[in-house]
Design a protein around this nucleic acid. Structure first.
Lengths: 207, 207
DNA sequence: GTTGGAGTTGAACGATCGTTCGAAAGCGCT
DNA sequence: AGCGCTTTCGAACGATCGTTCAACTCCAAC
């Protein structure tokens, strides 16, 4: 019957903050808005967090870590490069659709951090980008060199996937599976230059 | 030997504002920052503009209007649906690369407007999106129904194109022509499902 | 040389911002 | 009841925000 622990209260705070940041934007949102939305007093927020910027930092890193960890698991043991890409896309979009507010904050408020906070998030970004570029290199090894610049292809894919906070409604008539399938088709069809059979797409084995 | 006209000074102001907004973000930028960057006093800014929000609005609409106008010209008289898409992409990326600051402000500060300002920009967005969707419908009429949701395809393309302010350097080793070619290949290869010959791409006739 | 409008400014307005701090409240323990 | 530690809060801090305004300069028109 114990009340919520300190970490649980911090999670609640971060979740409420992500929602408000996603709706109103980081800089438009005042700590007073945030206190109101999370049900604690203005000063109470500072018991759990050192600053407004740390709040944003925690939202970004915690969710980015989850995306990267999920990606590692999703790629583990998968050798076919095409399916590796499918899994990469699938993991990214699944997490995105399930945590729209947090991922919008991660995608859209990238420039709001500074100093050490910014550096750490940028490190994760570099790591994640590198992972995708490596998979793309695998694809080229297996299917011959693409007629596309690898960097442009990688960032185009990130663009497709990270832009969805601008238009996608997880509760609308386009389900997450369909979204992921479509992005896979779109990217793979364009990158490897040949139609991709449905059987090669990850959804068939991802339950 | 006449000095700059009122409109020219407004243009200079808007240009300076776009640069600062792109670098620091709209809400992080104070009117004092802006005055400093544009070389007039704080109060002087208000002689040309009614409010900070109008400043943002003017940047967004003027450039969006230019993109849409350019698109109309680029598509005029072109009947082949594949080439129409190529022209659409080409026009978008050309303008984007040539006006990175302004287009970053347009893409990234979409939610910073409100009221009538927001409504007018959203109207333009709807119009532009509709134009792309129409071209996609043309493609499907000519090449058979795509195995992709048209809305997902359209927004994925916008994602690819509008995301470039996060990574693309027009002065880097990837030229605008290469960028445009790559995005064309990536999208068309994935959308119509067959490799696109270079001859069908717009660059060959766009000088 | 005077008028009048366009352009520009320094100084100030009230509002709101992120953050701090001392005090009070809750609570397990003796 | 009384202690010590965590948690919460009202009130206030200085700073900065967008905006306003009266006053000033400049220059063409008369």
């Amino acid at each position: 019957m114990a009340g919520p622990t300190r970490d649980q209260k911090l999670d609640t705070l971060l979740s409420a903050a992500a929602k408000v940041f996603a709706e109103r934007g980081y800089h438009e949102t005042s700590m007073r808005d945030l206190a109101r939305a999370s049900g604690v007093s203005l000063a109470g927020v500072y018991y759990y967090v050192q600053s407004k910027e740390e709040l944003l930092y925690l939202i970004q890193t915690r969710n980015f870590e989850a995306v990267i960890a999920g990606m590692r698991v999703a790629l583990q043991g998968v050798t076919d490069p095409i399916e590796r890409i499918g899994r990469f896309i699938d993991n990214h979009l699944d997490y995105f659709a399930a945590h729209m507010a947090e991922m919008k904050v991660l995608s859209h408020e990238a420039g709001a951090l500074s100093g050490e906070y910014l550096q750490k998030v940028n490190d994760m970004k570099r790591e994640y980008t590198r992972a995708l570029m490596d998979v793309l290199a695998d694809v080229e090894r297996a299917h011959g060199p693409a007629h596309l610049n690898r960097r442009v292809a990688a960032y185009s894919l990130f663009g497709m996937m990270n832009w969805i906070y601008n238009w996608y409604d997880p509760l609308g008539d386009v389900g997450v599976e369909m979204l992921s399938q479509n992005v896979c088709h779109l990217f793979l069809g364009g990158y490897v230059g040949l139609p991709v059979s449905d059987a090669a797409l990850p959804r068939s084995s991802a339950g």
